[in-house]
């Protein structure tokens, strides 16, 4: 493990660990959104070397794959733009003006792209094909993360400063409810007919009934629970915790929500991705690094990227069937 403390005094060195077969196809890539650098690091997942650095305007943070899987959109809130990339190669495909896009996601029926505009307190609904604004909700302060019900009836958005969870009806585009949820809610994930919401100002997650928004369960995961991810086999729920000294990634049983293991990870883990070899790629916000962790041992190596790495996309996710989101990895 290379820690930040070691990085202060030691030159960075990382041995490449081949983990993917050479098929002649473009190498699998990891794209890391460096919010503090206005860049996206494109990493060859095989060699773990940065092969390109793509510019954005100001502050790339999160990603969404278009339903046809042809374009990867990266949000740039400070630059008021969505940047488009080839999801296989990371090659740029242009950008579109969008007001303050932070976290974003396509509805499961592929009809809408919903964007949380954190700075402007908007939850914006755009038409998928035209990117035309269809509806704007002012549902609270600092809209943070969002998810949908699988039938595309409902959308849920955490309001970070208001301490609330907001839901609106996707068919009528009208508000359903807003409920207090805990201090500084962040990550939102639909799971087994319920919602999991990270409560960043507290020490864990809550399970919420999507019908009326009442809290059905609470589970401690660690201080500063920020975002939540479900592995592709629906076997492990991961929660990144990034407050108070030693930050960590918690692995939970997705049914019982019992914490199975906590991986201490220095440097503020944020978004994560899981590679086909089982390694977990983790953006470390405070460290300018991506950690590649073996979940069996908890050991990890790091790859140096830009300042404040935030969202992380692994192109290997394209081999999966069905809908792809940044939180179901």
């Amino acid at each position: 493990m290379i820690t930040r403390r070691a990085a202060l005094g030691l030159p960075f060195a990382l041995a490449a660990t081949p983990a993917f077969a050479d098929t002649g196809a473009p190498p699998p890539i990891c794209m890391v959104m460096n919010s503090g650098d206005a860049t996206i690091s494109v990493i060859d997942m095989t060699t773990r070397q940065i092969i390109a650095t793509q510019p954005t305007f100001r502050e790339p943070s999160h990603w969404a794959l278009t339903p046809d899987r042809q374009t990867l959109y990266v949000s740039d809130a400070g630059g008021n733009a969505l940047f488009a990339f080839d999801p296989q190669t990371g090659a740029p495909k242009g950008h579109a003006p969008i007001a303050d896009p932070y976290q974003l996601g396509y509805s499961p029926d592929a009809k809408y792209l919903v964007v949380n505009a954190l700075r402007l307190n908007h939850v914006d609904v755009y038409d998928t094909a035209s990117l035309a604004l269809v509806k704007r909700f002012q549902a609270g302060k600092m809209p943070s993360h969002l998810d949908f019900s699988p039938d595309s009836r409902w959308c849920f958005s955490s309001q970070q400063e208001s301490d609330t969870l907001f839901s609106f009806d996707m068919t009528t585009l009208t508000p359903r409810w807003t409920v207090p949820i805990g201090h500084t809610p962040a990550g939102v994930l639909w799971l087994n007919g319920k919602l999991i919401v990270c409560i960043m100002g507290e020490n864990g997650i809550v399970e919420v009934d999507p019908v009326d928004g009442h809290i059905t369960r609470r589970q401690k995961t660690g201080p500063g629970a920020h975002n939540v991810f479900l592995d592709s086999k629906n076997q492990i729920l991961y929660v990144s915790n990034r407050a108070v000294g030693h930050t960590s990634l918690a692995a939970l049983d997705p049914v019982t929500l019992e914490v199975k293991r906590v991986y201490p990870i220095d440097g503020g883990p944020d978004d994560i991705g899981i590679a086909p070899d089982g390694k977990i790629w983790i953006a470390l916000r405070f460290n300018e690094e991506v950690a590649v962790m073996d979940p069996q041992t908890g050991d990890y190596e790091t790859i140096q990227v830009g300042r404040s790495p935030h969202g992380i996309y692994l192109s290997t996710i394209l081999s999966r069937q069905g809908r792809i989101t940044a939180e179901t990895i």
Binding site: A7, L8, T184, G201, G224, R242, A243, V244
Partner: peptide, 24 residues
């Protein structure tokens, strides 16, 4: 890296303690 240390070990704990994590 120094700023990261400062944030992680001094500022974020204060934000967390006072329920100001929206500024994280």
């Amino acid at each position: 890296i120094l700023a990261g240390y400062m944030d992680e070990y001094t500022v974020v704990p204060v934000l967390y303690h006072f329920h100001w994590m929206e500024w994280d």
